[in-house]
Design a protein around this nucleic acid. Structure first.
Lengths: 191, 191
DNA sequence: TGTACATCAGTGAACGCGCGTTCACTGATGTAC
DNA sequence: TGTACATCAGTGAACGCGCGTTCACTGATGTAC
């Protein structure tokens, strides 16, 4: 098999795979992992469900990769945001009503947290790594004397942010929900 | 129908209902709501699945009541703990490895958080009320000048605790997981 | 360049399975007289 | 007190349905010569 033979075909296959992955990452965050069927997800990607197994071995494998993919994107976005507007901007963006109200492209740790805790080892590993990397980005921009203290404060802040957004999505009353987000933001601004 | 006629029978029916509710509250927290079938749950309660609808109208109704029930128990336990050992004891208990490792009788907001955010209105209302009541108990024992400030700090602390336990359950490495819990505990002790 | 064959992404029907819910039935208990 | 009937908690089979996964097939593309 020479080098650029099949090139177009391979590129198209990779593109389809990415389309499925993107649709999965959105659908899982929007509706939950268990509540999203492969048929739903493939339809959203514009394909019939039978072709799924040309690209992934199982739903579990897709879940792990979709989780890793959405966390990597989010981490990049946080990095850019922090680089331009600092640590506070990350906290404010995460604790915004906009993030609370758009699960599909928000943080999977908040939209899928308790489902991820019961997922298989691969998915849990991807989620744990995502948490660590997000905390790292935050720590690098927190502007604090010791590195250890920055990391400790970043992990604390991130856990609080995840809990706050999860709870804010449970609380129906928009005033109470937003008050919780504001509350947590104020406390995190003070650390 | 005279007053204490049928008395024994009614009491037994109520007892069965409570058995189902207790089994549900444990099974949902242990394995998740969607992953727990009515057949599983009724078997755990020592009954066949067909009798379920003599006691509840639907799985959704059971979920809401099981959620309310486990949150009420937890709130009572927190109240007792705070009364005896103060605010710090609540935080330490919640952020303990023991709580992390025993989902079945732990806090449903941590074990079911992201599933509750997608549950029906009745369940979300029960969960939101549970959050508010837990925060109230904490606020009353936080020992702070203004009541408003105590409530704000309690809501912040509770959100952070829920996020921390959820993430600690995702992280497989027990050292890193426990370090996160310790970290959050230290920061909350300082508020 | 042209022709015969191989590959493989994608289709859509089908598989077995478990789900929430319904239902005809049982049998213990309570009610009526 | 005794007897005939009504109630209803609990059983277990059955319902329709949707799931993850498999499979025979299609047809466009790439390979061999």
């Amino acid at each position: 098999m020479r080098d650029h033979s099949m090139k177009k075909s391979k590129a198209e296959t990779a593109e389809t795979r990415q389309t499925i992955l993107d649709a999965a990452a959105r659908a899982f965050r929007a509706n939950g992992i268990q509540a999203t069927s492969l048929a739903d997800l493939m339809a959203e990607a514009g394909l019939s469900h039978g072709g799924f197994y040309r690209h992934f071995n199982s739903k579990d494998q897709l879940v792990a990769q979709a989780c890793a993919s959405s966390l990597a994107s989010l981490t990049d976005a946080l990095e850019a945001q922090a680089h331009q507007h600092g640590f506070k901007a990350i906290v404010e963006g995460y604790l915004s009503a906009a993030h609370r109200d758009s699960r599909a492209d928000g943080c999977p740790l908040a939209s899928l947290g308790s489902e991820l805790a019961r997922a298989d080892a691969g998915t849990r590993a991807a989620a744990a790594q995502g948490f660590a990397r997000m905390a790292d980005v935050m720590a690098r921009h927190i502007g604090r004397r010791s590195k250890a203290r920055a990391q400790s404060e970043a992990a604390f802040a991130l856990a609080a942010m995840i809990g706050a957004v999860t709870m804010a999505r449970i609380i129906d009353d928009p005033q109470i929900s937003s008050a919780l987000l504001d509350d947590v933001r104020q406390h995190l601004d003070a650390i």
